[in-house]
Design a protein around this nucleic acid. Sequence first.
DNA 1: GTGAAAGCGCTAACAG
DNA 2: CTGTTAGCGCTTTCAC
Lengths: 335, 335
Amino acid sequence: MRATLKTIAEATGFSINTVSRVLRNDRRISNETSTLIKGKAEELGYIPDAIASSMRKPKSMTIGVVSADSSNPFFSEVIRGVSEKAEELGYQMLIGNTEENASKEEHLIRLFLSRKVDGLIVMPTSEKEEKHKAFYSALPVPYIFAGRYIEGLEDHSILHSDEDGERSVFEYLLRNGHRSILYLSGPENVSNTGARDRGMEEAFRALGIAAEKKNIFHLAGHAEDGYKAVNTALNRGMEFSAVVCFNDIIAMGVLKSLSENDLSVPDDVEVIGYDNLMFSQFMKPALSTVDVPKHRLGYKAMEVLNEHIENPELPYRTENLPVRLVFRDSTAGKR
Amino acid sequence: MRATLKTIAEATGFSINTVSRVLRNDRRISNETSTLIKGKAEELGYIPDAIASSMRKPKSMTIGVVSADSSNPFFSEVIRGVSEKAEELGYQMLIGNTEENASKEEHLIRLFLSRKVDGLIVMPTSEKEEKHKAFYSALPVPYIFAGRYIEGLEDHSILHSDEDGERSVFEYLLRNGHRSILYLSGPENVSNTGARDRGMEEAFRALGIAAEKKNIFHLAGHAEDGYKAVNTALNRGMEFSAVVCFNDIIAMGVLKSLSENDLSVPDDVEVIGYDNLMFSQFMKPALSTVDVPKHRLGYKAMEVLNEHIENPELPYRTENLPVRLVFRDSTAGKR
DNA sequence: GTGAAAGCGCTAACAG
DNA sequence: CTGTTAGCGCTTTCAC
């Protein structure tokens, strides 16, 4: 049998209440009883029951983290940030994965709610479904979207400036004379895709260049996808002097295909990724990409979530973390 | 106010108990009341309180997962496996990271116990500390070590055959005439390091080759480490025709240094990694490595943990998942 | 300083 | 088929 407050109370002759006070370091307890009780607790291997405790306390000190795709190091990094701040603040994390499936997302959140999480950090899918939005609006706890948004609930998001990022990528390419760009964009149901597509269009507009025929593919985001997309483009006889990728993982597949097709990077084709994963600097050629502050994103999300937990009246407010185009060896133009 | 069983009971005129039964789909409840109550529950937006429920039930349906280093995709993959099986079995996961710190490991586990987890899956550090072993022996819940072991508690481990893996690497290299091998081994306080070192020695013994002067470095496991180690080795004038790496991440750093030093892989130097991360196939040259069934490891760990949760009498038993040397472009010898 | 009593939301044991 | 009672381990309120 596991030791409880009662066990200790019986063993020391004090009341359950006094034991509880001592173990919570409540004031107005004599030093003597305190050491006595603490000694006994230690001796009996007492482990406080946080579950029982949270039945009476208003907070469970648990948050739910809903990740989209655990096989992508991008999300691992974000969660690391969340984890770090959560630890600082004393929260435990319940974690689940949706694999980009909106109904799994809702299901997970229901499970978390049932476990009485104090708040949620979510990387959501399906930015536009009305039903999905309604689901979130009805949530009884604070929630923050990390790195993505849901239409109509933009306030709840901590974002990285997707428009800026992709605009800077295209501005760079357009300024350097590229006019046929293969744009391997992301899945249609995540908000980053739309945001980056807008960034691209802004670049064309800002430079007064008409986007001729568009070479756009929407991919799921795996290396395979990038590999196949380039093969397809090549087979179809598409011409392009640059490939812009939705993420670094796609870019890896792209580099592979290009290399197999004897196209030299960056001489024949320039390639730019997105996310700046740790691995990207070790690609050959080292991948130029858009650096996203992944860790900071998670850290910030947890920080803001906590503020909303502490103060439910606090109005929500989008934040946009800055991104930065990182030039490495897969690009060669004038910066 | 959140709806509870009581709220629903009052709203429908039934007792709390009846409501509870309906919502748990208990038998012997008339269809009529059942639909009535379920309807009301839906209407009130009732969310069951799993916390309160687990105060009375013997199981909390929560497990604790203690990962070692969340920045390494190896562990993400393992956790993905755990997660998949956990979901199948209906468990929620509490996750924490130790960053290879043994006291953080114990601290995390205490927190998890205090949250009444039904069991633990741990990637432990400090294989040899008596105190650490004692800590685990005293644990009041079932626990499984994934991919590593602690001396004296080997039974609790689901492993991947580290000896076999490293032996096959060295046998390959020795058979192909390599006699000066730079061996970038792992951190001294994780069990895989020792196991793989033994595998290496077995290879020398099996082939009757005396390991001349040893070129062994023990690294923490980051890409930087591999990069610096090769630079150091080169600066010291060490000669080697092959580099064996503790993991693929180290190998990335190694490839980078080699390339910068105009050493051609595999012509001048063969390089072999360990883990077979998704990225490794996209390295240039594509990395030869030892494939470890990461996902299966996690999946299996959760499966076995559940067996022990269901039946606490069940004796623990080490399992060893097979590994396989994968040849790609960073090696060139006869297989 | 310390104790007694109530109750968080739920399930289980017993009753009818 | 349904209700009553007790209690999980803890914290809170109110006493003294």
